[in-house]
Amino acid sequence: MTTPQPAPSAASSAASSAASPAATPAVREPAKARAALGRYRVMAYITGVMLLVLVVEMVLKYVVGAPDDLMRWIEWIPFAHGWIYVVYLVTVLDLWSKLRWGFGRLAVMVLGGVVPVMSFVVERRVHADAEARLPH
């Protein structure tokens, strides 16, 4: 005599559907998504470099106490980084919406332009994940 098997719970069926490729929304326009990925990569590198330059500027200003003559030459850095970050955010939103990722991924990508070196790490992960989803 066989014993009846319990029906799968809602949690286990939700977990198995989340792991399946069908649960991830398909990329509607792969060519546009690939172009958005390229723009994002460029802005991630530019933003990361500018953030490191900003860190150096802040160390010179607040830790070292650089002379005013030097500070006049580098006072443009925070302003430039701010506008570059805005452009970076536009590319993040563009890529995020085209690949139809979740809000957690959006938050990590946004923080990538704020935490030094994080944009390089996030860019590598985002690029790998995007390439896996885009047709070749």
Results as ranks from 00 to 15, higher is better:
T2D: 10
T3E: 14
T3Q: 12
P4K: 11
P4G: 09
Q5T: 14
Q5W: 04
A7W: 06
P8F: 00
S9K: 01
S9P: 02
A10G: 03
A10M: 13
A11M: 11
A11D: 14
S13D: 02
A14S: 13
A14N: 03
A15T: 01
A15K: 11
S16R: 14
S16D: 14
S17T: 12
S20A: 15
S20K: 07
A23N: 07
P25D: 10
A26N: 09
V27Y: 10
E29K: 11
A36L: 05
A36H: 09
A36G: 11
G38V: 06
Y40L: 11
Y40A: 11
R41Y: 02
M43G: 01
M43A: 11
Y45M: 08
Y45E: 02
I46M: 00
T47C: 15
G48T: 08
V53Y: 09
V53K: 06
V53Q: 06
L54T: 13
V55R: 06
V56G: 11
E57Q: 14
M58Y: 13
V59T: 10
K61S: 13
Y62T: 04
A66F: 12
P67D: 15
D68V: 13
D68E: 15
D69W: 12
W73M: 14
W73T: 14
I74R: 12
I77G: 04
P78V: 00
F79T: 15
A80E: 01
A80D: 01
W83N: 11
W83D: 06
Y85F: 15
V86K: 03
V87H: 00
L89N: 00
V90P: 02
V90S: 05
T91V: 10
V92E: 00
L93D: 00
D94R: 14
D94A: 11
L95D: 10
K98I: 04
R100C: 01
R100I: 04
R100M: 06
W101P: 05
W101M: 13
G102V: 08
G104H: 07
G104I: 13
G104K: 02
G104Y: 04
R105V: 15
A107Y: 05
V108P: 08
V108H: 07
M109K: 08
V110Q: 04
L111Q: 06
L111M: 15
L111V: 09
G113R: 07
P116R: 04
M118Y: 15
S119I: 04
S119D: 05
F120A: 03
F120Q: 02
E123D: 15
H127F: 05
A130V: 11
A132K: 15
R133D: 00
L134E: 10
